[in-house]
Simulated assay, not measured.
Amino acid sequence: MGGPNFPPILLLKTKSSPHDGYDEFFSAQNYIPTFVPVLSHNFHDENLGQIKTLFESGRLNTGPERRYGGLIFTSQRAVEAFADMLAGLDQSLTATASHSLPLYTVGPATARSLTTLRDTHLPHATIHGADTGNGENLATFILDHYNRLFSDPATSISGDEVKSRKPPLLFLVGETRRDIIPRTLMGESMPVSKRIEVDEVVVYETGVVAGFEGEFERILKIHDDTTVVWAVVFSPTGCDAMVRVLRREEDIKRRERGGRKVFVATIGPTTRDHLVKECGFQPDVCAAKPSPEGVGEVIAEFMTSLDGQ
């Protein structure tokens, strides 16, 4: 896939540091990726301070005073906020708390960030769910895995007793998120013994980068002489601004009876559905897996279909 005339690809995200999997993947495929930051993130210091207190008080250690039995992450930003908080703690505290501490995550990119955090601050913790791909699959995985950690086939105990022995999970989130994970884990249709309590704590807040719309339009103008451009969308946030720019592009194209075509790929179904339902905009492709390979695969298939027309 790829070649010297392969179309430009605009990645509507902030480039991750020190390595960005999308930059590495698409550069290796002979694309020239351009990052267009969409989201601004601010850590929620007050809530992170409460989590810091859990470590300092030993409430994440094993034992009768344990407050939480594990943590859930579904975004790299939550991992970054958590890592920033851990950096200010004595490593002996975090190392002790990491014993028998499962960390649940979704998607390979978040798992890579979490692995770096684990290796630095939580050496005894274990990471699970990296291949689940979305929140619904992760919730199903957690129901099986976490319940098995507290099951004892050699004894016969009631559902209420199992529930009392099983500490809740702490879910570190942004202020905008879907509720599929807590709704699934705490569902009323679930047997009492299988339910898993979840406490959500907002550790970062998200907004649209000031000037994103103008910057996106400016970068598109750089490619005025290019027939095809790809834009990859990673989040519902900022979709409205992107669509406004693309609709202006379509108006120009109709007036000029030609011009550049901007194709849109989404990282997954949540962003695709937001574009369709909230923006009235149909993206061209949606990745089956939220990864550089997943995005690259659907773009390659689409381009092959264009070549065959």
Results as ranks from 00 to 15, higher is better:
Ala265Thr: 09
Asp273Thr: 15
Phe302Ala: 08
Gly280His: 11
Phe263Leu: 12
Ser291His: 10
Thr270Asp: 04
Val295Ala: 11
Gly296His: 02
Val298Trp: 04
Ser291Phe: 07
Met303Lys: 02
Pro290Arg: 08
Val276His: 05
Thr271Ala: 10
Ala288Cys: 07
Gly294Glu: 05
Cys286Thr: 15
Gly296Leu: 00
Gly268Ala: 13
Val285Thr: 03
Asp273Val: 11
Met303Trp: 07
Cys279Thr: 04
Ala288Asp: 14
Gly296Gln: 03
Pro290Asp: 06
Ile299Cys: 02
Arg272Cys: 15
Asp284Lys: 05
Gly280Lys: 07
Asp273Gln: 15
Phe263Val: 04
Ile299Tyr: 04
Glu297Met: 12
Pro283Thr: 05
Gly294Thr: 10
Thr270Trp: 05
Glu293Pro: 02
Phe281Tyr: 15
Ser291Val: 08
Gly294Met: 06
Phe263Gly: 02
Val298Gln: 01
Val264Phe: 09
Glu278Val: 10
Lys289Thr: 15
Lys277Asn: 14
Val295Met: 11
Val298Ala: 05
Pro290Val: 09
Lys277Glu: 14
Val264Ala: 07
Val295Thr: 05
Thr270Lys: 13
Pro292Tyr: 06
Ala265Glu: 01
Arg272Asn: 13
Arg272Asp: 13
Cys279Tyr: 04
Glu301Ser: 13
Ala265His: 08
Ala300Gly: 07
Val264Ile: 14
Val298Ser: 02
Phe302Cys: 01
Gln282Met: 14
Pro283Gly: 09
Lys289Phe: 09
Phe263Lys: 09
Ala287Ile: 00
Val285Gln: 01
Glu278Arg: 14
Thr304Phe: 09
Phe281Cys: 04
Leu275Glu: 02
Cys279Ser: 12
Ala288Trp: 01
Val264Glu: 00
Glu297Pro: 00
Leu275Asn: 02
Pro269Ile: 12
Gly296Ala: 06
Val285Gly: 00
Leu275Asp: 02
His274Ile: 09
Pro269Glu: 12
Lys289Asn: 10
Phe263Gln: 01
Gly280Asp: 03
Glu278Ile: 03
Thr270Asn: 11
Val264Cys: 04
Pro292Gly: 12
Gly296Lys: 02
Pro283His: 07
Gly268Tyr: 07
Phe281Trp: 13
Thr266Gln: 05
Cys279Met: 12
Thr304Trp: 06
Thr270Phe: 11
Cys286Gln: 05
Ala265Trp: 03
Gln282Ala: 10
Val262Trp: 07
Cys279Gly: 03
Val276Ile: 15
Ala300Asp: 11
Phe302Tyr: 14
Ile267Asn: 10
Gln282Asp: 10
Glu301Trp: 01
Asp284Trp: 06
Asp284Pro: 03
Ala300Glu: 09
Val276Asp: 01
Thr270Ser: 15
Val264His: 03
Ile299Thr: 05
Met303Gln: 13
Phe281Asn: 02
Thr270Ile: 15
Gly296Pro: 05
Pro292Asp: 06
Lys277Thr: 14
Cys286Val: 14
Pro290Cys: 10
Asp284Thr: 15
